[in-house]
Amino acid sequence: MVTLTPHPIDFTAVTESVRSPHCGAVCLFLGTVRDRTGEDVTVFLDYETYAPMAEKQLTAIEAEARSRWPIGELAIVHRIGRLAVGEISVAVAVSSPHRTDAFAACRFAIDATKEMVPIWKKDIPPDGASTWVHPGSP
């Protein structure tokens, strides 16, 4: 299951959504808003998305993960909008019969999400001079 949401992410509910009697392992990854990047201070992050394409890409990532590992359930939830320091921007939860596959599939799903899904964040520092984060900036 993949979801884009403007609402705070309930990571307990996301984790419960993947639990299964057939799975002895559940792996949860949370991405949260960090207060500093090097010397730069962040107050908020504004997340924007191209929603129809992002949902397609996330669905494709789920399908790829299911083809590579024995997965019970997989959930990717990404928040959109303004987030304060400490809030959860993304949750990935995976269940599998054994922990090695749960860890590997969870790692794959968050890495692919950060690489392939059209979501962008704007860094809002204390002085208000905001900048879009486009990795690889010259």
Binding site: K56, S89, T113, K114, I119, W120, H134, P135
Partner: peptide
């Protein structure tokens, strides 16, 4: 049409086209 496209991919008047700058989700 909501898929990453190669530079040789054809475009027609009804194509849904978007510019995707480097992504920074997560």
């Amino acid at each position: 049409n909501q898929e990453f496209a190669e530079s040789s991919a054809r475009i027609d008047a009804h194509s849904e086209i978007a510019l995707i700058p480097p992504v920074s989700g997560g």
